[in-house]
């Protein structure tokens, strides 16, 4: 699959991922003129374990602007989950700074919403009460919270399930509820840690389109962690590519695929060029790093030579 891709996007055949159409360039200019919501400045994280110290994140710096959709990709072990957990305030950083609208982040707060891969809906609350949770703990009256919650559920088309319990919903529905539960607090930024990783391919595609739709309609900045490159290109304005051991910024890619996004763009030249670049960044130096890379060649043939599947 990867070989096939490389063949089709050989240099010269397609525009570089750096080439942007006039519309895309204008859009990025508008984006960068918006205020900076999140500023990560020389952020480092050292884990201290029994065996000693491990540098998980090294000198990470980037900025996101209001209403930007930023995806973070990188090979496994690059610390992308650690990064988003630091942004959420669930984990402490060792040095550097995280500034949300100029204020340093030290602990979790309702100005940053988070969606986890494992849904984490409260199983003892109905769908509606799950959405009301954040509003109520932040001091809103029950009446207001309920009114808001129902509006949010309407936005994602789940108002019929307001009184159902989470276990009665499908995975995709659960994740939609988790997204609006985080959004109901009207955070400045929505952090998403591989939110669609547990969903099947079809549901995942639908959820991606759904998320873009929500993002277009409300004033929200999204930082989205994923290991799925197609997902990153399809969703993101810009993609932050991390390298592993230690996690460092390799490149901040401006995705040249125009908006609004649609599934048809998966085979557009811009899309393929971006994907080729991402593959190059992520898989470089992987040969000596990845234990799984060469194992398939070590498998001996256990069938008759005439009994071939090729």
């Amino acid at each position: 699959m990867r070989d096939a891709m490389n063949k089709y996007v050989a240099p010269g055949e397609f525009p570089s991922y750096l080439d942007q159409s006039a519309a895309v360039r204008a859009r990025f200019e508008r984006l960068k003129k918006r205020e900076v919501i999140l500023k990560v400045d020389h952020l480092s994280k050292v884990f201290t374990t029994g065996k000693g110290e491990t540098l998980a994140l090294n000198d990470i710096s980037f900025e996101t602007h209001r209403r930007e959709f930023l995806c973070v990709v990188g090979p496994s072990g690059c610390g992308k989950s650690t990064l988003v957990r630091i942004l959420a305030g669930l984990e402490e950083h060792t040095s550097g700074e995280v500034l949300l609208q100029g204020k340093p982040v030290t602990e979790p707060g309702s100005d940053r919403g988070m969606v986890f891969q494992g849904y984490t809906l409260f199983p003892w609350l109905t769908v509606k009460k799950n959405v009301m949770f954040g509003l109520e703990v932040n001091g809103r009256s029950k009446y207001e919270a309920e009114r808001d919650a129902l509006q949010w559920l309407q936005l994602i088309g789940l108002e019929k399930f307001a009184d159902s319990y989470p276990h009665q919903l499908s995975g995709g529905m659960k994740q939609r509820v988790a997204i609006v539960r985080a959004l109901a607090n009207q955070p400045r930024i929505l952090l998403m840690d591989e939110p669609f990783g547990a969903l099947d391919a079809q549901t995942r595609a639908r959820m991606q389109a759904h998320l873009l739709e929500i993002w277009r309609k409300i004033d929200i900045t999204i930082v989205f962690i994923t290991h799925d490159l197609d997902e990153a290109i399809f969703l993101a304005d810009r993609i932050l590519v991390l390298s592993a051991h230690p996690g460092e910024v390799q490149e901040l890619i401006e995705v040249p695929v125009p908006h609004p996004r649609s599934a048809a763009q998966f085979i557009s030249p811009e899309f393929l060029a971006t994907k080729a670049r991402l593959e190059e960044l992520i898989h470089q130096g992987k040969a000596d790093d990845d234990e799984d890379a060469d194992t398939y060649q070590m498998v001996a043939r256990l069938t008759d030579v005439t009994d071939s599947v090729d």
Binding site: G89, L90, T120, V137, R181
Partner: peptide, 10 residues
């Protein structure tokens, strides 16, 4: 995860 979710909700 439930505790962390609650924390991020404020």
């Amino acid at each position: 995860g439930l505790v962390e979710a609650a924390l991020t909700l404020g």
